[in-house]
Write a protein that binds this DNA or RNA. Structure first.
Lengths: 198, 198
DNA sequence: TGGGATGCAATGCAATTGCATTGCATAGAG
DNA sequence: CTCTATGCAATGCAATTGCATTGCATCCCA
C-alpha cells in the first residue's frame, strides 16, 4: 500500500451501507424525505457517522445514485448471463430491457429511487452527466443488436430505450401492470424485428 | 346567486397566480424547493396570502398539478385544431405527441414540473389517480387512431404512450436533442403505420 | 510506549419549514 | 350606520434541516 491505513474498517462498505439506507428512505417516503438524521436512523447508526463518511449531503446523494446505477447494470449482466450462449438479438434485447424495468417489488424500490433522481438531476445538471453516459452506452448497444431492416438504427434504438423508460414510469405510477408493460414491449419488438401481425 | 359574495376578488384567479409561481420555483429549483414562503416571494405576495388561498401545502401542490395537466391538454387541443379538418391518423398522433413533449424552453418548464410530480405521486398514491385517468384516456384515443394492421392495438397504444413519456424524460435530462426525439418518434410511427424502411 | 491519525458520538447553531393565531382593513348586507 | 364575513399581513412556534465543532476512544506505526 502506498497510503497509510491506520484503521481497519472498510470505508466503501460503510458508505454502501449508508447508501442502502438512503435508498430505503427514498423508496418509501420520497427523496425529499432524505435527511442526514433519517438516513442515519434507517441505517441504525448515529448521525455523526453519516457525516463522517459523507462530508456533505450532496456527496451522499451522488454516491447513492452511483449505487443504483451499478445495481441496474448488475441486474442486466446477470440476466444476460442466464441466457446462455448465442441468444437471438431479439431475446437479448427483451431480456436486457425486462431486467431494467421495475416489474417486481424488489426492483420497484430501485425504480422509485431512479425516478426521484431523474427529477433531482433535472435541477442539478452536474450530477446528470453519468446518466447521460449510461444512456449513450445503452443506445449504442441496442443499435448494434437491431436487425438491418431498420433504416435508421440510431432512431430505432433511441425509441426502444425511451419506450423502456416510459414503461418504467407507468409501472411505478400504477398506470400499467407488469403484463401490460411486457405486452407493449413485445409488440414493439415485433415491429422492430418484423413479425407481421396480421 | 345562491351564495353570498361579500368581496370581489376572483378566488380561482388568485389560486392560479400562486400555482404559476409554484411552478416557476419547481421548474428551476426542484419541487423540494417549493415552500410557502418561496412560492409567496416568487408570486410577489405575502406568505399569509398563500395560506389564505390554500389551507395546506398539499392542497396547493395538488392544485398546481391540476394546472399542469390542464395546460398539457390545452396544448394538445390547440395543436390539433391547428391541423384543420380530417388529418390523417398518423399526423394526428404525431401532432398530439409532439404537443406533449418538452421540445422548447416553454414546455421544458412544464415538463420539469410534471416529472417532479411523477416522483412526488410515486410516494403519495392518493394524488396519482388523476394521472391514471389521463393515461387511460390517452391510450384509448391512440388505440382508436392506430391502423388495423396492429394486431394488439391496446399494447401498441400503450407502447406509443410510453415512448412519448420516455422521450420526455430524456429530453429533460439532456440525453436526447429535440431532433433525436422527433426522429425516434417518426421511426416508431413508421413501424406502426407500416412504412417499409428498406 | 508513545503519538498521531482515524472512527465515531454528541452537541450546538443558524436557517428554514408548515402551520396556527392574531389583528385589522374593507366591503357589502341589513 | 352597524355588523359581520372576508381578504390579507404579521408574528409566533415547534420541528427539522445541513453542517461545524468538540471530545473521546481506538488502533497502527515508529
Amino acid at each position: 500500500m502506498i497510503e497509510v491505513m491506520p484503521k481497519k474498517v472498510d470505508h466503501q462498505e460503510r458508505r454502501t451501507l449508508i447508501a442502502d439506507a438512503l435508498m430505503r428512505v427514498a423508496a418509501d417516503q420520497g427523496l425529499e424525505a432524505v435527511s442526514l438524521r433519517h438516513v442515519a436512523a434507517e441505517a441504525g447508526v448515529s448521525a455523526g457517522m453519516v457525516q463522517h463518511y459523507f462530508r456533505t449531503k450532496d456527496e451522499m446523494m451522488a454516491f447513492a445514485l452511483a449505487v443504483v446505477r451499478e445495481r441496474g447494470q448488475l441486474r442486466v449482466t446477470e440476466a444476460m448471463e442466464r441466457l446462455g450462449p448465442d441468444p437471438s438479438p431479439r431475446l437479448l434485447l427483451r431480456t436486457m430491457i425486462a431486467a431494467l424495468l421495475p416489474l417486481d417489488d424488489r426492483t420497484r424500490d430501485d425504480g422509485r429511487v431512479a425516478l426521484a433522481y431523474f427529477a433531482y438531476t433535472a435541477v442539478r445538471p452536474a450530477v446528470a452527466s453519468s446518466l447521460r453516459a449510461d444512456t449513450a452506452q445503452l443506445t449504442e448497444f441496442i443499435a448494434s443488436a437491431l436487425p438491418a431492416r431498420n433504416a435508421n438504427a440510431a432512431a430505432a434504438a433511441a425509441g426502444l430505450l425511451a419506450l423502456m423508460e416510459g414503461l418504467g414510469i407507468y409501472l411505478l405510477g400504477g398506470q400499467y401492470t407488469a403484463e401490460q408493460a411486457l405486452a407493449a414491449l413485445d409488440a414493439h419488438l415485433d415491429l422492430l424485428f418484423g413479425v407481421d401481425s396480421a
